[in-house]
């Protein structure tokens, strides 16, 4: 996976206000990305590497692991707060599949985040993940200890 931005050096953000927009980034998810994630996560469901298996389930072709999109999206939060240990909770709905054609570019997914709540030393971040201008994660929110 290549990253066009994000992954800045860690820093602490004790100040967080509702409405703050966190730096976003884009990734190119290729078939190689999916193979790598399959091995790392031990999720070998063939719909993530076989067009034939994906089409048997009514999909247009190979799709990315939902958990790959979920895990990548959380970098919006961990890059911002600088410390993954501050993440208290994380929820997503998988609303649309990310189809990954067998091309060098693969699928481009763009991530962004906004702080929607700050209370009792905890910030709630709403995360957006867009593929072809469509949201692929629904109600994606993470709680972070400030």
């Amino acid at each position: 996976m290549t990253t066009t931005s994000g992954n800045e050096s860690p820093s602490v953000h004790p100040a967080a206000e509702v409405g703050d927009v966190l730096p976003g980034f884009s990734t190119h998810v290729t078939r190689a990305t999916l193979v790598h994630y399959a091995g790392a996560s031990a999720d070998f469901n063939p719909i993530h590497w076989s067009d034939r298996a994906a089409r048997d389930l009514g999909l247009p072709g190979v799709i990315a692991h939902g958990m790959l999109t979920m895990g990548t999206a959380l970098r919006v939060v961990t890059d911002w707060c600088g410390d993954p240990a501050r993440v208290l909770s994380y929820y997503v709905r998988f609303t649309k599949p990310v189809t990954v054609d067998d091309t060098d570019e693969g699928a481009t997914v763009t991530f962004a985040g906004t702080i929607i709540k700050v209370a009792d030393g905890v910030a709630t971040v709403s995360i957006e993940a867009l593929f072809n201008d469509t949201k692929v994660l629904g109600a994606a929110t993470a709680e972070v200890r400030l």
């Binding site: 996976m1 860690p10 790598h36 994630y37 790392a40 790959l68 895990g71 990548t72 970098r75 961990t78």
Partner: peptide, 16 residues
Amino acid sequence: KVAEFATALGDGANPA
């Protein structure tokens, strides 16, 4: 395994 998983998320350079 932690390094492999972080790399698969495109975050292999994260010192955490």
